[in-house]
Amino acid sequence: MTETTGKTGAAAQFEELPDAPPRRRLQLSWTGKLGVCVVVFWAAIVVAGPTIAPYHEADILDEALFVVPGSDNPYPDTDYQPPSRVVYLGSDYLGRDTLSRTLFGARTTIGISLASTLLAYLVGVTLGIAAAVGGATLDTVLSRINDAFLSMPTIMLGLVVIAAIGSTIPILIMLTGLIYATSVFRIARALGLDVMVSDFVEAARVRGEGLWWIITREILPNVAMPMATDFGLRFVYVILFISSLSFLGLGVQPPQSDWGSMVRENLSGLPYGSIAPLVPALAIATLTIAINLIVDDVSAHAGGKLARRMI
């Protein structure tokens, strides 16, 4: 999406050369545009959510707030109340405001997922590129270790570690980041190897460029676009993983709100027709589907080859 930005001095000069290929602009379809709108909406909530929320996430609302329409009698309960002017999206199983908790939860869920994905990329890309350029021995060692981690289902890996050391937000970020670094490693390594055998890297070597120069000037720019698409997909997986852990009661701990745990704790309200579990569920669904729609467009733009690589 940042096709037009980032044209600094050297790049601009190159574009003026007659044989430079014309830059293709990314054309988003209407579904892609819808996706961008939804993602921007949630990004805004992450920034502003706690400020615009009517209550605090941990506030258990006072009984006096809930008054039967047309009389002065308060409701007998404050939990699982339907939407009203007091609580716009109803209240949850403890009588907390669902809207406020969803707004606060956006920051927790998206923040943790983003931090984990960034960590996964930092570790995965560093090691992946190192394996691609560092020679056969390093490549074999790193790949074998990686395969061992990949051969366990992610949720099992998560459960074993959480059983051993418990669950706090820093542990959650580290754990998720390292689990997903394994798949990032695979892609970064594969892409890096592709570039390493290309003619222009050969030319750079013959010119006598150092390894660091080749990595920063040849490899990273060439793997950037595919990795960006993969980042979107990986981010979705991380959101689903974190929400699933929270849903199992092993992720973000109460009273902090998080979309996954909100679905779980309010599940018992479903039989009474409460919408408390549906609001955070819809929040997760809209965000993940929106990101997928954008990724679809971007990978079509990048030639669609990626889809087969990213399993």
């Binding site: 679905v263 039989p271 569920a281 669904a285 589907i289």
Partner: peptide, 29 residues
């Protein structure tokens, strides 16, 4: 299928409970 694979499993389950158990009342939740 695109919609279904981009949401978590527990979401599918939640909506199923809502439809089959709560609205239709066919099965226990």
């Amino acid at each position: 299928t695109l919609g279904l694979i981009s949401v978590p499993e527990f979401l599918v389950a939640t909506f199923l409970v809502l439809v089959v158990a709560v609205y239709l009342g066919w099965l226990p939740a």
